[in-house]
Amino acid sequence: MKKVKIYVTLRESVLDPQGSAVKGSLVNMGYKEVEDVRIGKYLELLINDTDRDLNEMVKEMCEKLLANTVIEDYRFEIEEAN
């Protein structure tokens, strides 16, 4: 069994109004050092042992469903699940 950790983030070129609002709040709270906030998604998948190329499989899942590559970037890590 493997654990796959997937991080989906908005592309640099895409405005993140939610992140801007959160940044505004943080600055108002006194954390004036905060320069920028970008909000993304974190997904965890548990995957049974398989003959398929796991790296390719996760990439495919990201491209087809988990991320929209028009507006988002993704990266992932694969580790042994306990």
């Binding site: 895409v14 405005l15 109004p17 939610q18 609002a21 929209n68 028009v70 507006i71």
Partner: peptide, 8 residues
Amino acid sequence: ALLRNKNL
């Protein structure tokens, strides 16, 4: 793509 409205 359709993004979140600018004013949220």
